[in-house]
C-alpha cells in the first residue's frame, strides 16, 4: 500500500547561511471553537497544558501549540499522528459544553522559515510589520503571504512557522524559492 504523501513531498529543503526553508509534514492540527469566557475554555486549557491564548495574535505552547485564530477560535498544533487522541481529549474536557472540534490536520501543511534573513524573505510577500518589536516570538497572525492565505507564527531565533493550505503549498514553495534567490 502506498505511503501517505504530504503536499510538499519531493521538494528539496533549502539550507543556506542565513536562510532555511523546510516543510514539517503531517503535523496534527485541530481547529477549536469555544466561548473564551466559558468554564469549558478553562477546561480546554487544562487539557492542553496551557490556557487558550486570549490576546489576539498570540500563541502559546503547552502539550501542543495553541494559536489564536479569532476571538473564539484556536488552532491546536501537535506532533504527527495525534489527531484522534487530541480530538477526543478536547471533547472530553469540554464535557456537555458546546465547543467545536474539527480535525484539519491535512488542511494545511507547515513550512518553517528560519535564519537571519527570514524576515527579509517574508517581507517580500507579507504586508504585516514583522519587526521583532511588533511580531516577536509568541505572535501569530492569519494573513496573506504572496497570494496565499497563511497562518504565520513567530518562534524564537527569527524562525517562522508558515501554515499554508495544502492546495497552495506548491505555489507558495515556488514563490518562496524565487524570493529567496537573493539570499542564497
Amino acid at each position: 500500500m502506498a505511503e501517505r504523501v504530504s503536499p510538499l513531498a519531493g521538494f528539496e529543503p533549502v539550507s543556506a547561511e542565513g536562510l532555511r526553508i523546510a516543510e514539517v509534514p503531517f503535523l496534527t492540527q485541530v481547529n477549536l471553537r469555544a466561548d473564551p469566557e466559558s468554564p469549558a475554555a478553562a477546561a480546554l486549557g487544562d487539557a492542553l497544558g496551557v490556557p487558550l491564548p486570549a490576546e489576539p495574535g498570540t500563541w502559546a505552547r503547552g502539550d501542543a501549540d495553541v494559536l489564536w485564530l479569532g476571538p473564539d477560535e484556536w488552532l491546536v498544533v501537535g506532533p504527527p499522528g495525534g489527531a484522534a487522541e487530541l480530538e477526543s481529549r478536547l471533547r472530553k474536557a469540554a464535557g456537555e459544553a458546546r465547543v467545536g472540534v474539527t480535525d484539519v490536520s491535512a488542511q494545511r501543511t507547515t513550512v518553517l522559515v528560519g535564519g537571519s534573513r527570514s524576515r527579509d524573505l517574508l517581507a517580500h510577500g507579507c504586508a504585516l510589520d514583522l519587526h521583532p518589536r511588533m511580531f516577536g516570538p509568541g505572535r501569530c497572525a492569519q494573513t496573506s503571504l504572496a497570494r496565499a492565505q497563511v497562518v504565520l507564527a513567530a518562534r524564537e531565533g527569527g524562525e517562522f512557522a508558515v501554515l499554508v493550505r495544502s492546495s497552495f503549498a506548491a505555489y507558495l514553495w515556488a514563490w518562496l524559492l524565487d524570493a529567496a534567490a537573493e539570499y542564497l
Partner: peptide, 10 residues
C-alpha cells in the same frame, strides 16, 4: 450556537 470550519483541503 454554530461554528463553521473549512475542511476543503483536509
Amino acid at each position: 450556537r454554530v461554528s463553521l470550519t473549512s475542511v476543503t483541503e483536509h
